[in-house]
Amino acid sequence: MMQNIFVTAIGTEIGKTYVSAATLLAARKRSLSVHALKPLMSGFSPDEYLHSDAGILLTAAGEDINEPALAKTCLHALPPALAPNVAARQIGVEIDDEALIEFCRVGLETKADFHLIEGAGGVLSPATDTLLQVDLIATLNLPVILVAANYLGAVSHTLTALESLERRNINVSAIVVSQPTRETAHPDGLIAELARLHAEIPVFAAPFEAPATALGEAVLSTLERRQ
């Protein structure tokens, strides 16, 4: 049985949705049924939900993109492009800790071979005013795929994220080092450092414009070996 997974990152806008979609596509290629959640989503425009993070996940999961499907995938779709708790506060919405946790748990109980939850922002980003992303992951008791990118400061950010996860006994199944833009450094430099500092964790490269299929299959195979 394929283990469920939470996709988080060392920061924002560095490829969580790309990695999540690649993993879902690879699972479907294996004829597995999949279910994806993006519980909190900032910077959302109702006119462009096809291209939103939740919309991309729905497409990768082979589901129709419409308002009911979006509501099952995302608890709060917030227009301000800010941390979810700040975005919610700005528009007068309350993100309740228990409601968020229950939304995720209900999603994980949906009949499917493989469940994936994509977080918002980085490991230590606030989900609510009292709950960090890492707290949500620990409460759900899910292993993670940690997404990183090779920029100045990325080694420190990655080690901080890993320490935060490990202190809460969260299993890091794999690290994916992405190249979200052509201008971002190639993943190899950060991968070399992580191989030296954390050789026990499988690390994969996701270079700019590389096909998603091979990445998703490599991640799935690693999840199977480490479950």
Score class of each variant (00 low, 15 high):
72 K>P: 00
72 K>W: 00
55 G>A: 07
96 D>N: 15
118 E>S: 02
76 H>L: 04
55 G>S: 10
40 L>S: 11
89 R>T: 13
52 S>D: 04
128 T>W: 12
45 S>T: 07
116 L>F: 10
117 I>G: 00
46 P>Y: 05
37 L>W: 05
50 L>C: 14
113 D>T: 07
79 P>I: 11
38 K>Y: 14
103 F>Q: 09
64 D>H: 12
104 C>Y: 03
41 M>L: 13
36 A>D: 05
40 L>M: 13
77 A>T: 08
71 A>V: 03
117 I>W: 02
48 E>D: 15
89 R>V: 04
123 V>D: 02
103 F>V: 03
47 D>T: 10
80 P>W: 09
128 T>H: 05
97 D>I: 06
126 P>M: 10
69 A>V: 00
62 G>A: 06
137 I>E: 06
58 L>V: 08
122 G>N: 08
34 V>F: 07
36 A>K: 08
109 E>W: 00
54 A>L: 12
51 H>T: 14
131 L>Q: 08
83 A>W: 13
59 T>F: 09
127 A>N: 01
58 L>H: 03
53 D>S: 11
91 I>W: 05
73 T>E: 02
68 P>H: 01
88 A>Y: 05
118 E>L: 05
138 A>R: 14
103 F>G: 10
51 H>D: 15
104 C>W: 02
88 A>K: 04
102 E>N: 13
40 L>K: 05
59 T>I: 00
34 V>L: 11
108 L>W: 06
34 V>D: 09
105 R>V: 00
77 A>M: 09
44 F>E: 08
134 V>F: 13
74 C>R: 01
109 E>M: 08
76 H>W: 14
65 I>S: 00
87 A>P: 11
68 P>R: 01
141 N>W: 01
35 H>Y: 15
128 T>I: 12
44 F>I: 02
139 T>M: 13
47 D>M: 04
135 D>S: 15
85 N>G: 02
126 P>Y: 03
30 R>F: 09
81 A>P: 02
101 I>M: 07
114 F>N: 05
137 I>S: 08
113 D>W: 04
54 A>E: 04
105 R>C: 03
107 G>M: 03
131 L>F: 02
92 G>D: 02
128 T>F: 09
79 P>S: 14
71 A>M: 12
135 D>G: 15
121 G>Y: 03
85 N>F: 12
62 G>T: 04
40 L>P: 12
85 N>E: 07
132 L>Y: 11
56 I>P: 00
114 F>R: 10
35 H>K: 09
96 D>H: 02
95 I>P: 07
